[in-house]
């Protein structure tokens, strides 16, 4: 899932202070699971903003609501009429949600309430770990299921570097060395010899370096195009 964390309230305040009617709009999927931007955190931020407005002597209305996801229009369409009554939408969705919503709110700006961090897992409550970088060309079968792109500080394909100390990365004692883990894991799997090969320079065009990515599944979307639905819901055209 996508992991995010709340922005400091000062930063949010600087963004929103000139607006009069603000909606903190929560997203109840990934960012809710990581306690950054679900309904609960949306209400928390709204409360903090009202308190701040009162401290500053600013007349400001701050409300909150949430939907299950900001990244699919069917989830927020039913509340859009209400949402559009505000001067500003502070979305606590991940950056995907903020972008996606922003394309569909016409003249009403959508600002981010959280920092979107990474794709992560939840090893224990309240702890979130980055395990994938979405590089678009998975090599986990060659690295014992441990991703050096996401988990090595230097995204080395032929690690480890000389900075490994007691299994930890040179960046921090708190950070596992991904290559240490890879070697140990592959030893356990009996596939260490796979690591003898030098992996050639990789093609980063599948990653964000290739520009914004889009997956288009023709077999799924074909019928929608026929119906002419596409133009109705395409970004920004709904206004």
């Amino acid at each position: 899932m996508i992991v995010g964390s709340q922005k400091p309230i000062d930063e949010i305040w600087e963004m929103v202070k000139d607006f009069k009617k603000i909606l903190v709009f929560g997203c109840n999927t990934c960012v809710a699971i990581c306690h950054a931007g679900g309904d609960k955190e949306a209400e928390t931020i709204a409360t903090l903003l009202r308190m701040r407005a009162s401290q500053e002597g600013v007349d400001m209305q701050v409300d909150h609501t949430s939907v299950m996801r900001h990244c699919e229009p069917e989830y927020f369409d039913p509340v859009m009429d209400d949402v559009k009554k505000y001067d500003l939408i502070l979305s606590t969705a991940c950056g995907v949600g903020v972008n996606f919503l922003s394309d569909r709110t016409g003249i009403i700006p959508v600002y981010p309430g959280i920092n979107t961090s990474f794709y992560g897992a939840v090893p224990e409550p309240g702890v979130f770990e980055e395990l994938c970088a979405g590089c678009g060309d998975c090599i986990l079968h060659m690295t014992g299921g441990i991703c050096p792109i996401a988990r090595c500080s230097k995204t080395l394909m032929n690690g480890p570097c000389g900075g490994t100390k007691e299994g930890k990365c040179e960046v921090s004692d708190e950070m596992d060395c991904a290559w240490y883990l890879i070697v140990e894991r592959m030893k356990m799997l009996g596939t260490l010899e796979k690591l003898s090969e030098v992996l050639p320079p990789r093609d980063w065009s599948t990653s964000r370096d290739g520009g914004p990515r889009r997956v288009s599944m023709e077999h799924i979307r074909a019928y929608e195009e026929k119906e002419g639905e596409k133009t109705e819901t395409a970004g920004g055209k709904k206004e």
Binding site: G162, T164, K165, V183, L195, E197
Partner: peptide, 18 residues
């Protein structure tokens, strides 16, 4: 460069070989 006594120590020769 090569760190002969770095962790994981038994992999360091492979590292050099690569």
């Amino acid at each position: 460069s090569w760190t002969p006594m770095g962790d994981p120590i038994d992999f360091r020769p492979v590292n050099l070989m690569k």
